[in-house]
Computed example of a mutant assay.
Amino acid sequence: MDKSARKEPFPGAYYAGLFITLALLLLMIVIASALPPGPAGAFFAFVLGLTVNPKYAPWFALVGLLGAVLGFAGDEPMVAWGGAALVVSQALVYLWHRKGS
């Protein structure tokens, strides 16, 4: 076995992480399904945007800005508010990473 390979913190840790991730995703789906399209798009984009690598945050913010502009121009509330929330989440990711550096 390769010595550089990492061992699990405890047996089944990766399976536990998988189940926790899936449970949180299902919870997000349940919460967003009860919301109108605009807030649902914003909720998903914001929460998932918080998971972006800080190195790519400026690019995701640019994509969010483009999505917001096109969404508002095309009367698509889910896209518009999702783009706006993505910009906000990327600003938080960037600021949090900068504060920690």
Rank of each mutant, 00 (worst) to 15 (best):
P11G: 11
D75H: 14
Y15L: 15
A84H: 10
A45F: 05
G74E: 04
T51P: 08
A23H: 03
P11L: 10
V30L: 13
L48A: 10
S4Y: 06
P58A: 03
F72Y: 00
V87G: 01
T21F: 05
N53L: 08
A68Y: 01
L48Y: 08
K7N: 11
L25P: 09
A57K: 04
D2L: 02
P9Q: 03
G38E: 04
A32I: 01
L25A: 07
R6S: 13
M28D: 03
F43L: 08
A84L: 13
F44I: 15
A61P: 02
G83N: 00
A34T: 12
W81Y: 15
S33D: 11
L48M: 15
A80T: 07
P39K: 00
F46Q: 03
F19K: 12
A34L: 15
V30K: 14
L27E: 03
A42E: 04
A34D: 13
G83C: 05
W59T: 12
L18P: 10
A73D: 10
P9W: 02
A91Y: 06
E76I: 08
T21I: 06
G41Y: 03
A5H: 13
K3G: 00
A34Q: 15
K55I: 07
L24W: 11
A91N: 00
L70M: 15
P54Q: 09
W81M: 10
L48Q: 03
Q90R: 03
S4F: 05
F43C: 01
L66W: 04
L35E: 12
A5M: 03
V79T: 09
Y14S: 10
G12N: 04
L27C: 13
A73W: 11
A23D: 06
Y94K: 13
A23N: 07
L70C: 04
A13T: 01
